[in-house]
């Protein structure tokens, strides 16, 4: 999917995260802020990059302000930001790209 504008998903509530997705400069760039970055930084990065890859996003800047979200939450917020970005709000691929 091609990221051509800015989209946001999530909140800054405890155990959630806020994802901001913007057009990239030819690759995926991740900026991560998290109170648990020492313990889970690598894991969060893996979840974010894997999720983008599943959705075929190859060129984007993604910023995550994490508030201690679990992996399932982070994945859902990233997916939401991507689908909002491309304007896809109906017929989401439940069980397809979203399930992987």
């Amino acid at each position: 999917m091609v990221i051509e504008k800015t989209s946001v998903a999530g909140t800054l509530e405890s155990s959630d995260c806020m994802v901001t997705l913007e057009p990239g400069n030819g690759s995926v760039e991740l900026e991560l802020e998290s109170p648990v970055i020492h313990q889970f930084g690598h894991q969060i990065r893996k979840v974010v990059l894997d999720t983008l890859e599943h959705l075929d996003v190859k060129d984007a800047k993604i910023r995550i302000v994490d508030k201690g979200a679990l992996d399932c939450t982070i994945k859902a917020r990233v997916e939401c930001a991507v689908f909002r970005n491309v304007g896809k709000v109906r017929g989401l691929p439940w069980g397809g790209a979203i399930r992987k």
Binding site: V36, H38, Q39, F40, G41, H42, Q43, L70, D71
Partner: peptide, 10 residues
Amino acid sequence: AITGEPEPVQ
């Protein structure tokens, strides 16, 4: 199992 295994603080 819920959080994943934490890495030690650097």
